[in-house]
Computed example of a mutant assay.
Amino acid sequence: MSGTVPEVWIEAGGGQDMVRADMIVVLRLDETGRLTAQLRDEARVSVTLLEGSADPRPPDDFHRRLIRTVAELGRTGGAQLVRARHDGDGWHWVSEPV
């Protein structure tokens, strides 16, 4: 990444790992609500960002919401960490400074 572009990181593996958003080339949200990201590398490594769950399942556009969140954070200063969270209002992407 360039020094002028803020870094956006996404929580993966239930909080054990983080993936830099600019390394993601493909997002997949399957019918169980599992969200995976294919990384930009020769091995085509995939990382689980959100484990699937039947109840409550994330909305069908949850992966698009992640893209929107990352794009919005790209216009702010400083490194940010993005996490998927479920509360009484449903699924959301939340961010915080790293």
Rank of each mutant, 00 (worst) to 15 (best):
G3M: 02
G3H: 07
G3K: 07
G3E: 10
G3T: 03
G3D: 11
T4A: 12
V5E: 01
V5R: 09
V5L: 01
P6C: 03
E7R: 14
V8S: 06
W9M: 01
E11N: 04
E11I: 00
A12T: 13
G13M: 03
G13F: 08
G13K: 02
G13C: 01
G15W: 08
G15I: 09
G15V: 07
Q16V: 02
Q16R: 12
Q16W: 06
D17G: 01
M18C: 13
M18K: 12
R20C: 13
R20W: 14
R20D: 00
R20V: 10
R20P: 09
A21R: 07
M23E: 15
M23W: 12
L27W: 02
L27M: 08
R28I: 04
L29A: 07
D30V: 10
D30Q: 03
D30E: 01
D30T: 10
E31W: 02
G33D: 05
G33K: 10
G33C: 10
L35I: 15
L35A: 11
L35H: 12
L35R: 12
T36R: 08
A37W: 07
A37I: 09
A37G: 15
Q38K: 05
L39W: 06
L39C: 03
L39K: 03
R40N: 11
E42C: 13
E42Y: 13
A43I: 00
V45C: 02
V45D: 02
V45F: 01
V47H: 07
T48H: 04
L49A: 05
L49K: 07
L49I: 04
L50P: 08
L50N: 04
L50D: 09
L50H: 08
L50Q: 04
E51I: 08
E51P: 14
G52W: 13
S53T: 15
A54C: 11
A54D: 14
D55C: 04
D55W: 11
D55T: 15
P56F: 06
P56R: 13
R57C: 13
R57S: 05
P58Q: 15
P58R: 13
P59G: 14
P59T: 05
P59N: 12
D61N: 13
F62Q: 03
F62V: 00
H63I: 08
R65A: 05
I67K: 14
I67D: 07
I67F: 02
R68A: 05
R68D: 06
R68I: 02
T69H: 04
T69P: 10
T69Q: 12
V70N: 08
V70I: 11
V70Q: 03
A71E: 05
L73V: 10
L73E: 04
L73Y: 01
G74P: 11
R75M: 08
T76E: 14
G77A: 07
G78D: 08
A79M: 08
A79D: 04
A79I: 05
L81W: 05
L81M: 06
V82I: 09
R83W: 00
R83I: 02
R83F: 07
A84E: 10
H86S: 06
D87H: 05
G88C: 14
G88S: 15
H92Y: 10
H92S: 14
H92W: 15
W93N: 08
W93K: 11
V94N: 13
V94Y: 02
P97K: 14
P97V: 11
P97C: 13
V98Y: 13
